[in-house]
Computed example of a mutant assay.
Amino acid sequence: MNLLAFDTSTDALSIAVQHGARVWQHSGAGGAQASATLIPAIRDLLAQAGLSFDQLDAVVFGRGPGSFTGLRTACAVAQGLAFGARGGQGVPVLPVDTLLAVAEDARAQHGCTRVVATLDARMNEVYAAPFEWQADGRWQVPQDFQLLAPEALAVPDGWTVAGNARAAYGERLAPQAPHMHALPTAAALLRLAPALLAAGAGVAADAALPRYIRDKVAQTTAEREAARQAAPAPQT
């Protein structure tokens, strides 16, 4: 199977190409830079793997949660590349949850099988979800992801916290639990892809969407004014 995978949901850009049994990887700066560097880096990595867009079987991307700008960038690029692949016939897009990819990265790096995956959501909050590795070689995936303050994260005994949130919040985040650094890497996306594609998770390019857990990051002018008027007047 020939797959292209990438993630721009964090401050790290991650790209991987699978050509048969071999995998090529690239990492770089994410965030705002990803929109300018993602496509050139993809072209370079495909060239290293000896692949063209017309030879791809699917395009895989980290759909979120994560950076709003990063998620929109990844989704738009995945859609465009999938539309144009195979001489314009197109290939499926596989949107993968970034927290699931964090759990998979923790399993591959550290052997973790009970993982509370976390990502820094900024604004003094974290994205979090529990994942448990099953005997059939797949992750048990929860229906709902959480957006909560670091202090509110509950971790069951015997579970490991993985992700990048500990680096941001330190002892505020589950201080009694073991922690492992992990990211939604493109290599993790590739490992997850075969089972997800076999389960029918691939979609047409125009049906691929980011997954936002936080609906809003800023108030409108009217909302700010309403909040100002509702606030108690300062005492003199």
Rank of each mutant, 00 (worst) to 15 (best):
A233M: 08
V102P: 06
G137C: 13
T37E: 09
A231N: 08
L99V: 05
V203R: 04
G50M: 10
N164I: 05
R211N: 08
L4V: 09
V91Y: 13
T220A: 06
A168K: 12
T69M: 11
G31W: 10
T236E: 04
D206L: 13
P178V: 04
A226L: 08
A106I: 12
F61R: 11
Y169D: 11
T220V: 03
S27P: 00
Q25N: 03
G163D: 03
L94C: 00
T73E: 02
V23P: 02
G200Y: 14
P40L: 03
A199C: 04
I42L: 09
F145W: 14
Y212E: 06
P210L: 10
G111H: 15
V155L: 04
A208W: 05
W159C: 07
P130A: 14
D54R: 08
R138G: 15
G90R: 02
A74D: 08
P40Y: 05
K216E: 15
P234I: 14
R172T: 03
A154S: 15
R72N: 10
R43A: 13
H110K: 04
V203G: 01
A16T: 00
L3V: 08
A16P: 02
E104S: 12
A188M: 02
D7T: 01
R43E: 15
W139N: 09
R138C: 13
Q48K: 13
G70V: 07
V59T: 13
L99F: 12
G20F: 01
L183V: 07
W139T: 03
A12S: 05
H26V: 03
T118F: 14
D144S: 06
F83V: 08
S27W: 09
A177D: 05
R211P: 00
G87S: 11
V60F: 04
F131S: 01
E225T: 09
L196W: 00
T118N: 05
A21L: 12
R166F: 12
Q219P: 01
F145E: 05
E151K: 10
N164P: 00
R172P: 00
A233E: 04
N2W: 05
R172L: 06
G28K: 11
T118M: 09
Q134H: 12
V141Y: 09
R191A: 10
E104V: 11
G31Q: 10
A177E: 04
G64V: 02
A74R: 06
W133C: 06
D120W: 11
D11E: 15
A177Q: 07
V102D: 14
S27T: 14
R86V: 11
A154K: 15
I213Y: 10
A167F: 14
Q143M: 06
L94Q: 04
Q79W: 15
A29N: 01
G31M: 10
L209K: 04
R63P: 02
W139F: 14
G111K: 11
K216M: 07
